[in-house]
């Protein structure tokens, strides 16, 4: 399925990238999405990104909720006029039969408070299940997207469940030799849910958060936005872990989100500052 998607989007002008080697809550955090959504340069990319969402852990008990799973991410900037048709074409390519399955575009405005980003779009439903997040980015890091990028985020496990017609993610065939998704990941879900919710040392997590914040600021001072952005990703993941541990009160939650957002915005700002001369030269009609 991943190979089919790679072929499909590669044929349509996307560069095929590898996953980013850091823990993140969504493919949107990949610098190839976030930082590349800034500025006027066209950018078309597709990649798989493993995602970690500690609070979504269910100890392997829920048939389609996981604390670790895979997204397939496509970003097309500027958004092409036939993006919906391109997307539906990709579904057909991986074997979704639209004469027997009900595909719907249901309003879902995307917002990432930790990235200072928002966009309008839909969650795409296949027979009532959300299989893709479809977003036209309007802002990233607090800056208007000029031009707007279209982002497609496929839930790979969910799509696979459709195509293989299984009821539980753990029953998915991982290969043709009888290895299932459960064989590969079930124990991981149980252990990591336990660690996320019950075991992770919160003192060292708080400490890690502070250190990532400091390192982000350090990188910003050195005018290294990509390095700073990496620290923002790390801080964001630590914050997610702290939330799963239930040690962040409602009042504090907003303050933490605000701090991560400031880091991400700072990185975006620095990236813009760094790139502006090049962007101005190549795209005279562009302005911030």
């Amino acid at each position: 399925m991943i190979l089919t998607l790679h072929d499909y989007w590669s044929e349509r002008g996307c560069v095929i990238l590898q996953p980013y080697d850091m823990e993140m809550g969504a493919g949107t955090f990949h610098p190839a999405t976030t930082l590349r959504a800034l500025g006027p340069e066209p950018w078309n990319a597709a990649f798989v990104q493993p995602c970690r969402r500690p609070t979504d852990g269910r100890y392997g008990e829920n048939p389609n909720r996981l604390q670790h799973y895979y997204q397939y991410q496509v970003i097309l900037k500027p958004s092409p006029p036939d993006l919906q048709e391109l997307y539906l074409g990709s579904l057909a390519a991986i074997g979704v039969d639209m004469a027997t399955h009900d595909i719907r575009f249901v309003e879902d405005d995307w917002e990432s408070p930790t990235l200072g980003a928002w966009g309008l779009g839909w969650e795409v439903w296949c027979d009532g299940m959300e299989v893709t997040q479809f977003t036209y980015f309007q802002q990233m890091g607090g800056f208007d997207c000029k031009p707007v990028a279209g982002e497609l985020t496929y839930g790979l496990e969910r799509l696979a469940m459709y195509i293989q017609n299984v009821d539980s993610v753990y029953d998915l065939a991982f290969n043709d030799a009888g290895v299932t998704y459960g064989d590969v990941y079930h124990e991981n879900e149980v252990q990591m849910s336990t660690w996320n919710f019950e075991v992770a040392n919160t003192d060292s997590l708080f400490d890690a958060f502070r250190k990532h914040v400091a390192e982000c600021e350090n990188s910003l001072n050195a005018a290294l936005p990509i390095a700073a952005y990496e620290q923002a990703i790390k801080a964001s993941h630590v914050f997610n872990l702290l939330q799963a541990r239930g040690v962040i009160s409602v009042a504090e939650r907003q303050a933490y989100i605000g701090r991560v957002r400031d880091l991400a915005k700072g990185a975006c700002r620095a990236q813009i500052d760094k790139m502006t001369p090049q962007w101005r030269a190549n795209f005279p009609e562009w302005s911030l």
Binding site: P40, P78, Y136
Partner: peptide
């Protein structure tokens, strides 16, 4: 109540806004 920009024209923030891309 909420509108958006899209496509090539959105290089400018003055581009047309509609609820979703107007076709």
């Amino acid at each position: 109540p909420k509108s958006m920009r899209w496509g090539d024209a959105s290089l400018s923030s003055e581009s047309l806004r509609w609820v979703r891309p107007l076709q």
